[in-house]
Design a protein around this nucleic acid. Structure first.
Lengths: 112, 112
DNA sequence: TGAATATATAATGATATAGTTATATAACTG
DNA sequence: CAGTTATATAACTATATCATTATATATTCA
């Protein structure tokens, strides 16, 4: 079972978000993922470990390589949490609409 | 302009997520937000500062009180970033569908 | 088999974070 | 105005995080 602390914490790092963005275009090995960054290979390996621990990526073994890919489940879980905020904001807008509607109605009553 | 590092980092803390969940039900003052937590008031004040700095909440001044509410813009920005991953995953599923479709077609060809 | 490649782990140092207590500031309240 | 309420800030401590270098492990290849 994954953990929102770990997941959001993983997303808080720009290198890790860039890695996810790269993986959005398809699977990639550690070296491929490391290439664009001005950072050592061990540093990237640890970022991948964090992403995997957060349930945001998965890896397979292919000889000496470990191709990584996005993990739908982890991303979905984050999405589910954010859905709560989205709904709340939508509800707030609805309420605002009601207030505006009520104001309009009152105006109409005042000047029929 | 807000910052995804700061925003995701803010969401990585369970206390702060709980505060946002509370604010999803409507505005609340600092004391109201602090009440459910086994934590001092200064600690909560700092969490709110982090959330505000991340663009996730906004505050107004009402006498000695500072009611907080959700900030749609910040939440929307996070959502926009995640949209990229959602699309990538959707695209991956589509590709998988195509592969499955191709396999089915081949089977049909083999046994017409 | 021995060198090269791909990746992981350990030790270390620097910086950030979350909590605490103590205290400051501002606004209500009698 | 004096006391209380609402919130913020500062100083401090403990723990976590990110990067580095050095090194280990497993795989491929000539």
């Amino acid at each position: 079972m994954m953990n929102l602390d770990t997941a959001f914490s993983a997303l808080a790092d720009p290198t890790r978000r860039a890695i996810l963005a790269r993986l959005a275009t398809g699977e990639a090995t550690v070296m491929e993922l490391a290439a664009p960054f001005d950072m050592t290979q061990p540093a990237v390996s640890r970022h991948l470990k964090v992403l995997e621990g957060a349930g945001l990526i998965a890896r397979r073994v292919e000889g000496a390589k470990r191709p990584c890919r996005l993990a739908p489940a982890g991303i979905a879980e984050i999405d589910r949490w954010l859905e709560m905020l989205r709904q709340a904001l939508a509800a707030n807008y609805d309420r605002l609409d009601q207030v505006i509607a009520a104001m309009t109605t009152n105006e109409n009553k005042r000047t029929p």
